[in-house]
């Protein structure tokens, strides 16, 4: 199966350049870090507020 695929020549669709792959990876890491910070922030505030986390003004 693998040999069949390689015999068919270059794959269809878009092939990313090295620069595009590199920048996409950078952006993915930045998004992951931002989401990580958000999770840590919610966790930390939950610890700080304790049961009062469910009591919000307004």
């Amino acid at each position: 199966m693998a040999s069949l695929m390689t015999d068919q020549g270059p794959p269809d669709g878009i092939v990313l350049t090295e620069a595009q792959k590199k920048s996409r990876r950078q952006r993915s890491i930045a998004i992951a870090l931002a989401l990580g910070v958000l999770v840590v922030l919610f966790f930390a505030v939950t610890l700080v507020k304790g049961p009062a986390v469910l009591v919000r003004p307004m």
């Binding site: 878009i14 920048s23 996409r24 952006r27 930045a30």
Partner: peptide, 13 residues
Amino acid sequence: LPPRISEAEVSDY
């Protein structure tokens, strides 16, 4: 047109 693939880096954002 071919779809635009972003090369924007984190520093651009």
